[in-house]
């Protein structure tokens, strides 16, 4: 079943034609990766899906209902961890639940039960600046998950990490996904990352961002994947 749909999204930002008639969909429990060069409007698309800005034309449909320009429905995580430095790790993670109306006590209790699966056991009372880069991103992901467990928008969440940590995080994200089965829309400019994580890949062109290719890569063999990689690189003129 289709979880999320973007229909004919166009957007001009500060006089710059950024998104050109983008249509894409995300099925339930699917992990879809958007690949494209830097500055191709991928993040703008996430701003639109999360309701932060309105598209010039087009609609966002979630669970069959129009959610265009409405915030508070999907979990949105960016490249920066954006943890509040003045709150403990646990409070940072529990905060979305408080925003949704739960008491701090309930929210903390709920958040605590996830810490070990997110590799944050024993760090509840630490401040974000005391954590490593990978842990911060895991905390940010847990916060995103607790806000909206069914749809996660992940905007280059591992791009700022070193190669070893990034690889660990990618593997960990896949195992997490098998456990919780959210629907994930994931942005990256790293084709390898896309092929490793995705069920399906959308390829974006440089500005104005346009869908120039779609690849179903679930259950592909390594050979087929490397063929995919070549095709994607061709599409991106690499």
């Amino acid at each position: 079943m289709t979880k999320l749909e973007a229909l004919n999204i166009c957007k001009t930002l500060d006089g710059l034609y950024t998104l050109d008639n983008i249509s894409l969909y995300l099925k339930e429990q699917e992990l879809v990766v958007i690949v494209g060069p830097s500055g191709c409007g991928k993040s703008t698309l996430f701003h639109i899906i999360s309701g932060l800005i309105n598209p010039d034309t087009g609609r966002i449909i979630i669970d069959g209902r129009d959610h265009t320009g409405q915030t508070g429905r999907v979990g949105y995580m960016q490249q920066k961890d954006l943890l509040l430095p003045f709150r403990t790790v646990l409070d940072n993670i529990a905060l979305p639940l408080v925003l949704k109306g739960e008491s701090w006590q309930e929210a903390r209790k709920k958040a605590k039960s996830y810490l070990s699966q997110f590799g944050l056991e024993g760090f509840a009372d630490y401040y974000p600046r005391q954590l490593s880069g990978g842990m911060k991103q895991r905390a940010a992901l847990l916060r995103t998950y607790l806000f909206a467990s069914d749809i996660l928008l992940l905007d280059e969440p591992f791009a700022a990490l070193d190669a070893i940590t990034r690889h660990k995080m990618q593997k960990w994200l896949l195992s997490l996904r098998n456990q919780y089965n959210p629907s994930i829309l994931f942005i990256t400019h790293d084709i390898e990352e896309a092929l490793l994580l995705a069920d399906r890949i959308y390829v974006f062109s440089p500005l104005p961002g346009r869908v120039v290719g779609e690849f179903a890569v679930k259950n592909l063999t390594d050979e087929e994947k490397s063929l995919c990689k070549k095709q994607i690189m061709q599409l991106l003129n690499m």
């Binding site: 999360s50 508070g72 949105y76 920066k80 509040l84 925003l99 949704k100």
Partner: peptide, 28 residues
């Protein structure tokens, strides 16, 4: 950080909540 504010807006927080939870403590 405007992204920090955007994050809270994306979670549906009101302007006053953002001031109370993000802006004011950040400014301390």
């Amino acid at each position: 950080d405007p992204d920090q504010i955007n994050l809270f807006r994306s979670m549906g927080a009101s302007n006053f909540t953002i001031f109370r939870m993000v802006k004011f403590p950040s400014a301390l």
